[in-house]
Simulated scan of single mutants.
Amino acid sequence: MTSETPQTTANGIDQLSTRLGYLLKHAHLRYAETSAEALAPLGLNGRELAALAVLAEDVPLSQLEAAGRLGVDRTTMVALVDTLEAKGLAERRRSPLDRRKNVVQLTEQGRTLLNDAEHVRLAAERRFLAPLPEEEAEALLRALRILTAIES
């Protein structure tokens, strides 16, 4: 038996199918794969899309502020912004409010790609959640927002 083979008890219940951590991990892996396949033709990955979404807010953010919203460290954010800049999707500029600080803003190309990618992301989410009735899919999203303390 490999480590990937679920263990079944005498009453036929898969021991792992009752474990929240196992279920969350494998749901995440399956969704990440679905999302990656959907975004690949656009030349984006999920982390880049999340960064574009955060940077699209009306108020320009510094790299540090954007990192905080994404939940990544400074080094990761610098590398992410470097990648977005290299792709022509974002640019660093001096803050008009504080000349000592740089803000990161989307370029027009970045805004256009974000719009396209959001359509692709939503379609991938719908495909992923399709096995659930609509009410259950919405309940799952609400529950996850509560558990991760993200306001809706």
Rank of each mutant, 00 (worst) to 15 (best):
G43A: 13
A66Y: 03
P60H: 10
D58M: 03
A40F: 13
P41D: 08
L70K: 00
S62V: 05
Y31T: 08
L70V: 00
A51R: 04
P41F: 08
E37G: 04
E65V: 02
A50D: 15
A36P: 07
S35P: 00
T34V: 12
P41L: 09
L52H: 09
L42D: 03
S62E: 05
S62I: 06
S62P: 10
Y31G: 11
G68R: 05
E33D: 14
G71K: 02
A66I: 02
E65I: 01
V59Y: 11
L42F: 04
E48N: 06
P60G: 10
L64E: 15
D73Y: 01
N45I: 11
E33S: 13
A38L: 13
A56Q: 07
L61G: 01
G46C: 13
A50Q: 14
T34I: 05
L52E: 11
E65S: 14
E65P: 05
N45Y: 10
T76D: 07
A38D: 13
G43F: 10
A56W: 00
L61S: 07
A66W: 01
T34N: 08
P41A: 09
E65D: 15
A56C: 09
E37N: 12
P41T: 10
S62M: 05
A32S: 14
L52N: 11
R69S: 01
G71F: 02
A67L: 07
L55P: 00
L49Q: 08
A50K: 11
L64C: 07
E37M: 06
R47Q: 15
E33F: 07
L42E: 03
R69N: 02
G43T: 11
A66G: 14
V72K: 00
E57G: 08
Q63T: 14
A38Q: 13
E37Y: 01
A50F: 04
V54G: 04
T75G: 10
V59E: 14
P60T: 09
R74F: 05
S35E: 14
A38Y: 13
V54Q: 04
R69G: 00
P41Y: 07
G68H: 03
Y31D: 10
L64H: 13
G68V: 00
P60K: 08
L42C: 09
E48M: 15
G71T: 01
L39E: 09
L61V: 01
T75E: 09
E57D: 09
E57M: 00
G71E: 02
A36W: 05
P41K: 09
L52W: 10
L39W: 12
G46N: 15
A66E: 03
V72L: 01
V72T: 06
A36V: 08
A38P: 12
R47K: 15
S35R: 13
R74T: 06
A36H: 14
G71H: 02
S35T: 02
R74E: 05
L52D: 09
G68W: 01
L64W: 07
A67C: 08
T76A: 14
A67S: 14
Y31K: 14
A38E: 12
A66F: 02
